[in-house]
Nucleic acid binder design. Structure first.
Lengths: 247, 247
DNA sequence: CGCGCAGTTGACGTATGTCAAGACAGGTGG
DNA sequence: CCACCTGTCTTGACATACGTCAACTGCGCG
């Protein structure tokens, strides 16, 4: 649905608006929020555990991840964020970061000051609700990932993740027919799914062998959506892509 | 810190207040929110996947869980809630339930109408922030559980859960020196940790054998907090029990 | 053209799952 | 107060999905 963004904030506004229709005034206010745009290479830290940021991050291009390390040094990626997402919106009300955020691919991100966000939320309570809702959808995704990691085998888990990414990228207009860019390594997929990189490799081969996905240099194509969806036990309900009043 | 609650809402108010100091007026308003109190036996469904509730649930006594089923019928418990928690606060902004909620032990819960909550949030924007914050802490716990289930072995995972429950119960005054009630079966622990019930049994024995916990009829005692904490790689940061301005 | 990272492959190890039988305990009825 | 009964927990034998290690391949980038 959305066009390439003319201003940095457009991505965010478009996403908010799609499920929570904004008034012209609200849209204007958001449009004029000051944003500091930054380009990043792959694997750069954006915010770190323990910090007390004064700003929120907004993904404009590329892929970012939220992660944490166990004491044994194993990394769990607990979220992947696509353009339009705000990976650390929660820092608005949680003083200290309990996670780290990094770029996965090279990407461009924007930073919006907490005080600016707070100001617009005060003036427009509906925007508070819209941002709050965004953090609730994030939480819903964490829940689904817990189900994924806790109860599904590697094959189903990977299929599920592919379905989710396809769906979320689709929602922001970043899929092309039946394919999408997935600028991520198998190592990162492993940390996301809680399995080893070797096993990711084998599992991807299994999915390819079963004709559920095709991969060619960081690009995934889905020959049959319904088959992949079934293999991944994917029900998009938890993404809450319909607004409050939709079926 | 809190005394046994004189009114149903006291638990919630006390919890909100402890990290987000409320004014007398705000406290009064919350105090007078109408609550429908219900007693439940163990294993009763409170809200179900797919529903569109018009109210939020507030745990007053006992333990409740948030869960989801995989297509294979395996259950993942993605959250446990103790008195003072509101397991489905997110339903305020997410129309349809993406999870189910059930009692774990026999317990008593309160129900507060969405419209009542929305009304107080409108009149007292600071309360909006306080409730929003609650949902953000829930999300933070989901993240930690993802790390737990995705990267830690069963032994560490269980120790971690024990640490978390001890800490959270402590925060609402429900621990007694070094012990706490844990009215949960090993089956439910298994579904929480993403391991089998048999393995929970063995892992509990290992923890007991190492002197990290003692168990006697649904009551857990922690002989050495620092040892258990180390075994569970537990850092309470993610629980955000300090307010915005604490160290 | 070659360097280096990402991906692949095979052999082998292990944490955890499954099944099924048995022990225990807490609540209920006589 | 005892006896039973059901749900919970325990135990052992065995199965398996996935991890680890290490060598090899291949592709994209300079």
């Amino acid at each position: 649905m959305p066009e390439p963004p003319p201003t940095p904030n457009a991505r965010m506004i478009c996403k908010l608006d799609s499920i929570f229709p904004l008034s012209e005034e609200e849209r204007q206010v958001l449009e004029h929020l000051p944003v500091l745009v930054k380009r990043l290479k792959a694997d750069q830290e954006i915010v770190s555990l323990g910090e007390r940021p004064q700003q929120c991050c907004l993904v404009l291009e590329g892929l970012t991840c939220v992660y944490k390390l166990s004491y044994a040094g194993r990394r769990q990626i607990m979220a992947l964020h696509v353009p339009g997402d705000m990976p650390d919106l929660h820092s608005l009300h949680l003083a200290v970061m309990d996670i780290s955020i990094a770029s996965v691919s090279s990407c461009t991100v924007g930073f919006i000051q907490h005080e600016d966000l707070r100001r617009v939320c005060e003036r427009f309570p509906r925007l508070t609700a819209a941002f709050w809702r965004e953090t609730l959808v994030d939480a819903s995704i964490y829940r689904e990932w817990l189900l994924n990691v806790g109860q599904r085998d590697a094959y189903t888990r990977l299929a599920h993740l592919m379905c989710e990414l396809y769906t979320r990228l689709s929602a922001v207009g970043l899929t092309d027919e039946r394919t999408f860019e997935l600028p991520i390594t198998q190592d990162e997929l492993a940390d996301t799914l809680g399995i080893s990189a070797v096993h990711v490799s084998r599992t991807l081969q299994a999915l390819r062998g079963d004709g559920l996905i095709e991969t060619a240099r960081k690009r995934v194509t889905v020959p049959s959506w319904s088959k992949l969806q079934e293999a991944g036990e994917f029900d998009p309900l938890y993404l809450h892509l319909q607004g409050r009043h939709a079926a």
